[in-house]
């Protein structure tokens, strides 16, 4: 039964999470509040691990969330749920692709969806930030990290490793 729920929830995510893998974050946040599968705090761990392991971010997050909910089969079911809407839609779309591309109504819809998705990601990450940043020390580290990310634009893995070292050294 949990597999059916997992499949359905991730099917919805695959259908409605438009844009990059980060667009799945607000949906996962909702799942964390709705089901006892994983808590909001583990979402940051999921993002960290999904960023620093091979594979597209969105797929990794789905596998991780599914695994936390119902073990190995849960991870597989969640990933399949995420993938099926893409498969169906693209197969349908591939035939009419060129007609659709120039359709300005389609473009207009995406013109509306994208800023809404930015708002959703902001809302979900605000909660994650509140959990991670709880005093002056963590706020300072986070700001420093942001400056480093923003100006140097290195691989995320580097910052995640630096975060791990800082966490152990400063006993956060």
């Amino acid at each position: 039964m949990i597999y059916l729920i997992l499949f359905w929830e991730f099917f919805k995510i695959g259908l409605l999470a438009v844009g990059g893998g980060l667009a799945t974050l607000p949906f996962l946040f909702e799942l964390a509040e709705k089901y006892p599968w994983f808590d909001v705090k583990t979402l940051t761990d999921m993002v960290a691990i999904s960023e620093s392991t091979p594979g597209p971010l969105g797929v990794n997050m789905a596998t991780y969330a599914g695994f936390s909910a119902a073990g190995i089969s849960g991870g597989i079911v969640a990933t399949l749920g995420l993938v099926v809407p893409s498969l169906l839609i693209i197969i349908l779309l591939a035939k009419v692709m060129n007609r659709c591309r120039e359709n300005c109504r389609v473009q207009r819809v995406f013109y509306f969806i994208r800023p809404a998705v930015v708002a959703l990601i902001l809302g979900a990450s605000w909660h994650l930030a509140k959990l991670a940043v709880f005093d002056a020390k963590t706020a300072l580290i986070c700001l420093g990290m942001f400056a480093a990310v923003h100006y140097f634009k290195r691989s995320p893995i580097l910052y995640i490793c630096a975060g791990a070292v800082l966490g152990i050294v400063l006993k956060l």
Binding site: G19, G20, A48, V117, S125, I141, G163, I168, L172
Partner: peptide
């Protein structure tokens, strides 16, 4: 402890991606 530090890095990474988006 490592994951507390990592979560700060993740917040910084997400903030940067959000700015870009």
């Amino acid at each position: 402890h490592a994951f507390e530090g990592i979560s700060l890095a993740v917040v910084a990474l997400i903030a940067d991606m959000l700015l870009d988006l």
